[in-house]
Simulated scan of single mutants.
Amino acid sequence: MSDTSPSPTGRTRNTALTCLAVAAGMLGLAYASVPLYNLFCTVTGFGGTPMLASGPASKVLDRTLTIRFDANVAPNLSWRFTPETPAIKVKVGETQTITYKIQNTGYAPATAMATFNVLPEMAGGHFMKLECFCFQENTLKAGETMEAAVVFYIDPAIADDPNMADAHDITLSYTYFPSKNGKTLEASANQ
């Protein structure tokens, strides 16, 4: 009878190669997890991520919702950021445009980018944006002011979502963060 089991050196090599492959796979997954999660949220509206729409809704319903607009600025950014109105009532499927005013109140030019989310989180998949200033880097000189708009509608499919049957209010929340090269500095520090 011949022994067909690998030698101790061969077993050690196989174990080392398996460990190396597992470590490389875990490292690759770690690098891919943030972009994959962002893609998942964008496609599904998970976590309150509004959806991007290519055109207006196909119909307008009689159901009316109150849309609230929240504007925030990171503590290390000398900007003032406000919506033209804190809330509006809209019919489901009706296209609306809201303008925000952004002002650099600091003494030097500053570059920043807005991130966003929708509350309740389940409404994210029904909040359809046609145009948005989010994830666009803006540089404002000291004292400079600009206006930016978001064009949106609430998807009529919300009427068929049992989780949203009792929803009367949706909040669109933006936060401006200092940015560089198309990334918020907070996001860059966490990578």
Rank of each mutant, 00 (worst) to 15 (best):
M164T: 03
E147R: 12
A74N: 12
T18C: 12
Q103D: 08
T66L: 04
M122E: 15
V151Q: 08
A114H: 03
F46M: 08
Q103Y: 02
V118K: 03
D62F: 02
G25Y: 00
P50A: 03
L130H: 05
N72Q: 15
A71E: 03
Y107D: 15
T82D: 12
E131H: 11
I158D: 04
T9Y: 08
T4A: 08
A57Y: 06
L65Y: 05
M164N: 02
P120N: 11
I102T: 03
P75S: 13
H126Y: 14
T44Y: 02
T145L: 04
T9D: 14
C132H: 10
T97Q: 04
T99Q: 13
E186K: 12
T18M: 13
A189L: 10
D155L: 03
T82K: 13
P56L: 00
R11I: 12
E131C: 00
T95C: 07
Y37C: 01
P156Y: 09
G93H: 00
F40V: 05
M122D: 15
I98G: 03
F46S: 10
M1D: 08
P178N: 01
T139Y: 01
V90L: 06
I158P: 02
K141N: 14
C41I: 04
T12I: 08
G47L: 02
N72G: 05
E137P: 06
S58G: 11
T82C: 01
P6F: 02
A110I: 04
E84T: 12
L61T: 11
L29N: 09
M122R: 13
L185N: 10
V34R: 14
K183W: 08
I170Y: 02
L119T: 15
A159L: 10
L172G: 00
Q191G: 10
F40W: 15
K129V: 10
Y176T: 03
P83Q: 11
P35T: 12
T139M: 05
T44K: 09
N190K: 13
S173A: 10
M128V: 03
G25E: 06
D3Y: 07
